[in-house]
Every structure is written in structure tokens, then in C-alpha cells.
Design a protein around this nucleic acid. Sequence first.
DNA 1: CGGCGCATTGAGGGCGGTCAATTGGTGTGG
DNA 2: CCACACCAATTGACCGCCCTCAATGCGCCG
Lengths: 239, 239
Amino acid sequence: MISRLIRRLERYDFLSDEEKQVLKGAVARTKEVPADEDLVREGDRPTDSTLLLDGFAARYKLLRNGKRQITALHVPGDFVDLHSFLQKRMDHGVVAFTPCRIGLVPHSTLRKITDQHLHLSRLLWLTTLIDAATHREWLVAMGRRPAFNQIAHLLCELFLRLQTVGLTQEMSFELPLTQAELGDVLGLSTVHVNRIIKELRTKELVTWRGDTVTIEDWLRLQGVAEFDPTFLNLENEPR
Amino acid sequence: MISRLIRRLERYDFLSDEEKQVLKGAVARTKEVPADEDLVREGDRPTDSTLLLDGFAARYKLLRNGKRQITALHVPGDFVDLHSFLQKRMDHGVVAFTPCRIGLVPHSTLRKITDQHLHLSRLLWLTTLIDAATHREWLVAMGRRPAFNQIAHLLCELFLRLQTVGLTQEMSFELPLTQAELGDVLGLSTVHVNRIIKELRTKELVTWRGDTVTIEDWLRLQGVAEFDPTFLNLENEPR
DNA sequence: CGGCGCATTGAGGGCGGTCAATTGGTGTGG
DNA sequence: CCACACCAATTGACCGCCCTCAATGCGCCG
């Protein structure tokens, strides 16, 4: 049930059986959340952190003028608000893009883990550091890359992240986001996202049918994106 | 010497005398770094984390076409690469904007702290979470705000962060960045930064003489920036 | 079949980019 | 004290990426 998280952590470092047991016991209860509903609301003071077991979710902020910016995409195996363990008040919301199954991990449990399982605790810390590193990649892409390269970068990132948790088939993966939602991820308008996707197709970098994205030329896609996977820390080493 | 970090952590939660002693003992040695030199280089595998004692520094990434994006600004009391404790390889560089005095904290010392001082260790984790929250604010500003509001937001953020470590006078602070460097922070061209600063002056929101910025109308500035300080976690609570 | 949400396309506009010249402040050498 | 170099700030002209508005196509479902 929590296997995607375990699988992900094992990419970073070896996990003992005891650690895996601790993780398995950490989810107090699970919940189903329908699409387009909030998993966590801005302003909340959660008493649990939310582990995404199934589905896609996103952290976002709304502006006065109604615009929305998505600051993180989450896939199964991700904690969407592990930081609420220490940052008591949520400064952003988290929305389900698809129906989601989530596991609630009480902060008291996290506290026990951080007190008693120092290595596991470092790995949890690491996942929040990777969130931050991903934010930085997005900043670079938004600030200094044209839309075309920016989208290419996002596709590279999502492919590797989904592969890590076993959610790719060959060079394909499911991306259940509308073009409007993608615009909110990239800081672009829906119309422009559409044009750029068209260009990705024309240049035969990807096939994109419905929610299924297939990367047709990984090397060239990675090239235009200037994608360097270092920030994902996908190498197993002592941490 | 390390007092700015202590002062900052005390904004988040109470620190025991012992914890302060531990922090004071953590800096193995200090170093002076001239302006425009790297504190940490991309690709490094640091054995120490760098605490900024004096000066301004920035994390950045370079693109093939020579463009640069700055992903974080750091002020005294900040760790610029605490994450290198767990993310072994640096995926970005850190440059000194002014002459900097830095304190090197060996990862072995950090390991000891995280093993033996659980509360302190949570507070260090918290600082990296605040880094991430700041990244998210920048994402929102870059993605969905016009340049004018974006700069206003940055000024609000820097004012509060500098105030936290005692580096403001009244409503003024030193901002030793050229307009080109500001452009790299904001994802804008130098020319446009210049125009927007002119507009900030015209609208009498700030005075900006040399490196000194004075906020003339905090409420209005905060208003156009839609600035909500929640992400800085400046409230003292048990963590 | 009609409605609805999403994708797609066209037309026109504006924010911010690039290129280039000018101003101004500061430091250095004569 | 001035000439000069250098660097950052400033300004103008023009351009283009991406935005907005609006219409159309298209698949799905009641």
C-alpha cells in the first residue's frame, strides 16, 4: 500500500526491513478524494501529513485576480505536505487532479519516527530537499527558458519521477492534466500551451494522445530541455 | 559570530543554552570569499555545509546560451547549502555578490547534531523547508505576476528576512545587487528591471539610492505584491 | 440530439526582450 | 586637477513571445 514510497526511498539509500515496517505502520488511515477537490487547504494547520498513494495532485496558490500558479506536481509515493510537520500553517493548497487515494500520517507518528529512526528521518528530510531542488528547476525553466524548452523539461522530469515509482510503460506515461492545468504549472496561457504541444508533435519529440504521453526521442527532448537529472538524486548512496 | 543564525532560529522556536552552544561549536573554520567568486560550485560534493556569516550570496544555474537564473538569495544567518548534507552532489552553484565571510560546518558535525540534538535538527530541517517555501513564492511571482508586482514582492521578502537578522534600519536595507543581477533573480532583462524600478520610484513606493532601498509605503507595497509573510514562518511555536 | 468540457485555431495587442547609445559615478594615472 | 577607463544606470527604438478574446471543432454522456 505504501510500496511506492518505499520503492522511491530505496532509490536514494538502502532501507532495512525494520524501516520498511515503520513506514508501513505510519499510515493511520486512508481516504479517497474525488478529482478537483482539495487535499489540503491554504491556512490549514494539519495534524497529519498526506501521503499520495494513488492519483495526481498539485500544490497551488491563487491570486486576487483569479490566476493560479501550481508550484509542485505530485505523483504516487510523494508526501504532498510533509513540511506541515514543521511548518504549522499551510501557505498553499493542494488539489487532486484525479481521484486520489491518500494515506494520513499523524504528525505524532512522524515525531516518533524522527526521534527513533534517525536514518529514516534523514531520508524523509531528503524528500523535502528534492521538492526544493525541483522548485529550483522550475524557476530556471520559467525564468530563462522559452515555453517550448520549458515544457520539454517538465516532460523529462515527470517521466523519470514516474519511472521511479513504476508508473511508466516503455517511453509512455499518463499525464491526466488539461492544457489549462498545464498552463498553471508552467505560468503560461492555455492557448500557448496548446500551440507548444502542437510544436512538440510537429517536431516528433512526443506523441500526446488524450492523457497518454509517449516520448519519441528521449535524447533530443533532453537536449532541448537541457535536462540534467542530478536534482532528482536518483543514485543510491549512504545518506 | 554565529549569532545571526541563532537569532533567526529563535524566531521559529525557543533554543536552549545547550543548543546555542552546539551551534557555536559547529563552525569548524571561517573563510573570506571575495565578491563574484563561487562559494560552492555546481558538481561539487562538499564535505562541509556553508553558513553565511556576512555578505550576500546567491544560488544560480547557468544555461548553455549563457543566461543565468538565480534561484535563491542568501543573507547572513542562512545556510547556503545545508542540503548538501543529504544531497551529495551540488546541482547548482553559489556565488558571493559581496565579499562574504562564511563558516564551514563539517557534515560529520551535522551528523552528530542530527543524531544527538533532535530538536535542533528539526529546526535545521525547518530552514530548508523555508527555502523551499520561498522558492514557491518566487514561482508564483514569476509565473503569474507582472514584473512590477514581482519586484514589489521580492522587496517585501528581503525586508522581512533582513529584519529578522537585524540588518534593517527603520524601513531601509542594503541591497548590493546590480540591476543585471536583479534581472537574473527575477527572470527579467536588465533593461526591464531598470524601467520597473523607475516605476516604483515614480509611484513613491520605494526610494532606491545606490545600494540602499527604503520602503516608503509598506502597506501599499505589500498590497501590490499581494505579499503574505506566512511562508517565512516568523512565528515562535513548538516545532 | 443537445450540452458540456476540453482542444484547437485565428486575429490582434501588450509586456518584456534585444540592440545600441548616452549618462553618470568612481577610481586611477598623469 | 584633469583625462581616461570602466562599470552600472538609464533611455530610445524596434521586435517577438506570449496574452487575450473569440470562434470553431470534437468527443463524451445524459
